[in-house]
């Protein structure tokens, strides 16, 4: 794979806060900080892996970049053009370049449309091709994702999970996007099918020079897919680096715990490995701990961790870590 170091997408200090509705007589509104000041960039033709547990805000990041959610503050630069303030109409040409693959292949396809109609739909929305040409494009797409032309007249329920995910990918590719947000694209699939879909995503990336934001909780798949990886905890990035650097030299206690919690599919190594035990659950993002959000579960927590929120710092090799420990 040839990856030029041209930035395709950059996110600066992105915040997405949701206001929670309280009772009629409540005096103050509470705010859920789903994404709280996140910055990263993705190079053209590369994959950025975003990992974290449920509720850490990784999906919200993806959706906010596509402006499916209006960002609270911060900048989203697509090829150096800020798109966060664009109106719906102005956004359309960018929508064509940025597409999304969803987690649940059962819920993300309209059961009343045929596969042909589903794949043609984005072409109609963006007025691309017409008549026979459009049909040809749809046929080309279905073959591109490894299905057959005669599948086009069938309905989604006639397909297995892996095949449905292929249909979702064909739909996303229809408008010739440059950037794909893959939101847990394989977590609903069986293991043997996961590898099929992942290999296909990689082949498509090579063929069309696609750029991916790969959102996942699966650390081993993220390592396999990504060039750069960001680890999220409670709305913030805690660590961010090139993939090999991150997996061989993890600095943040949360990243270490996350990796050690992953069951290793190898009995001998599973026996030897020392698990880092994280106590308790992820705190509520409505009322996160002061200072470092991770301190309540961190065994290295110090006085300063409750007083000051650690900022992302470069510790060399453009390896960014937000932890007071690595400041010393």
């Amino acid at each position: 794979m040839v990856a030029s170091k041209e930035k395709l997408l950059e996110v600066r200090h992105l915040k997405k806060h949701f206001e929670m509705k309280k009772g009629l007589f409540a005096s103050s509104k509470s705010v859920l900080k789903a994404v709280d000041d996140i910055s990263f960039s993705i190079n053209k033709g590369e994959t950025f892996g975003l990992v974290g547990e449920s509720g850490c805000g990784k999906t919200t990041v993806g959706r906010t970049i596509l402006k499916l959610y209006e960002p609270t503050s911060g900048q989203i630069l697509y090829k150096d053009t800020p798109i966060e303030g664009l109106l719906h109409k102005e956004m359309l040409p960018y929508r064509k370049k940025m597409q999304m693959i969803f987690q649940d292949p059962y819920a993300s396809l309209d059961p009343r449309m045929t596969v042909g109609e589903i794949i043609a739909d984005p072409l109609i929305v963006h007025s691309m091709y017409s008549g026979k040409e459009r049909m040809d494009r749809v046929k080309e797409l279905i073959e591109l994702v490894g299905l057959q032309r005669d599948h086009l007249n069938r309905y989604p329920h006639e397909f297995s999970g892996g095949q449905r995910q292929r249909i979702g990918i064909a739909r996303a590719l229809a408008v010739e996007p440059e950037f794909l947000i893959c939101d847990e694209p394989i977590s609903a699939l069986d293991v043997s099918i996961q590898a099929q879909v992942v290999n296909m995503l990689e082949e498509l990336q090579e063929k069309f020079g696609l750029t991916y934001l790969f959102v996942s909780h699966d650390l081993s798949m993220v390592r396999h897919m990504s060039h750069k990886v960001g680890v999220m905890y409670l709305g913030s990035l805690v660590e961010y680096s090139e993939v090999d650097e991150l997996y061989t030299n993890m600095q943040h206690p949360y990243t270490q715990a996350l990796l050690s919690a992953l069951p290793i599919a190898d009995p001998d190594r599973a026996e030897q490995s020392e698990r880092i035990h994280l106590q308790g659950d992820v705190p509520s993002p409505i009322n996160p701990p002061s200072g470092c959000a991770f301190r309540t579960r961190c065994k290295f927590a110090m006085q300063v961790c409750s007083e000051e929120k650690p900022l992302l710092r470069d510790i060399g090799n453009s390896h960014m870590v937000a932890c007071h420990l690595s400041n010393q």
Binding site: V191, S192, Q194, A195, V198, M221, Y247, I264
Partner: peptide, 15 residues
Amino acid sequence: SIPTVSTGKREKLIP
């Protein structure tokens, strides 16, 4: 068909 965390990236999975 499963990647392991220890294998380097971009080794083709065999589905």
